[in-house]
Structures are given as C-alpha cells and as structure tokens.
Amino acid sequence: MSDQISKHEVTQLLSDLQHGRAGAANDLLPLVYNELRRIAGAYMRRERSNHTLQATALVHEAYLQLVDQTRVDWKNRAHFFGVAAQLMRRILVEHARAHHAQKRGGDASRLSLEEAINYFPQKEMTLVALDDALKQLEELDPRQSRIVELRFFGGLTTEEVAEVIGVSTATVEREWRSARAWLHSQLAEIK
C-alpha cells in the first residue's frame, strides 16, 4: 500500500478534492482506512507492552505512508485530515465503547484496530454521548456536524476546516459556536 503508485493516486485524489471533485473523498476513504488497519495491526504485532499510540499519530503515519510529501501544501494536507476525521471519529468512539464494554467484563482477548489506540479513558462515555448527539445534529444541520467532526475529531484548525468545506473562517467560527452550544444543551439533557 505504501508504494509509489498508491502515493501518486492518493496525492492526485487530494488535488482532486481540493479542486472540488466530491467523489474523491469516497475514493480516498477506503485507502486511508486500509492503511490505518495495516499500521494498527503492525503496532499490535510488535507487541509493545505500552502502546499509547495516539489516534492522530496513527493517522499521521498513514499520511506519511500515503502521500507524496514533496507535492502537497497545507491545503492538500487539510483535505487529507478532513477525510480522515470521519475515521478518527469512528476509531475514537469505537474504542471508547470497546473499552467501556471491556471494563464491564467484555471479551478482552479480541485483537482489533480499536485496541491499538489509547487515549483519554476517563472521558470515554462523554465521547460516546457526543457521537450520538452529533448524529442527531447531522440530521438537523449536516454542515455544523461536519465542522464539529473536523475540529474535534480531526484536530483541524479553523482555517483548515474552512479550506476543507470551502467556506470562510468567519462562517466556521459562527457555526461552531452555535453547534457547540447546542451539543452542550443536548449532553446536559442526557446527564
């Protein structure tokens, strides 16, 4: 997967994405996901006793494997992490669920992508609740939900989010503020 051809393809797809070809995101997603699985698997096989691999680091490694560094700028990069944000969200939320289940006596022997990642365990249920609330928001206002996904799960800055969804930074800020307020009011209800 990390050979030059795929690199070329992924780099081309990023450029397509930056120029607005929507299908490029769909083409990119499986490539990124497969690479994530491969890296996570490799980490597990190395049997590190203390695998505190951060989700971002995982995605970052995938990025280095998949993208030709000499041919991209920060905008391409933002688009890559924009696509990866969905996956990061999935990884983080699944992990939170799995970790929670494990503590309740779930199957601890299962080896999966999710377990190669260790992030802040004390917040895991907040994260699951946030994911649920985000799904609701997605139905009400898809763009807001995407902004939260990109910022919170994708680790993107306001400028990068603006680049990925093609709006001004002012719009991102405004939408973020009301999305944040709405999500809080929802999460407060759950608690």
């Binding site: 989700a55 971002t56 990069r77 992030y119 907040t126 994260l127 910022r151 919170f152 680790g155 009011s185």
Partner: peptide, 21 residues
C-alpha cells in the same frame, strides 16, 4: 443554548487529538 455558551472553554474545545498542524 445561551446558557451553555457562557462557559468559555468546554471539553469540546479540547480536542482529544493533537492539532494536525
């Protein structure tokens, strides 16, 4: 929503992932 907005930074502002940049 206005109530929630009064908090300056909340857990939503502290992304669990490192900033990409």
């Amino acid at each position: 929503m206005l109530q929630s907005d009064t908090e300056e930074t909340t857990f939503l502002d502290k992304s669990p992932v490192d900033p990409v940049s």
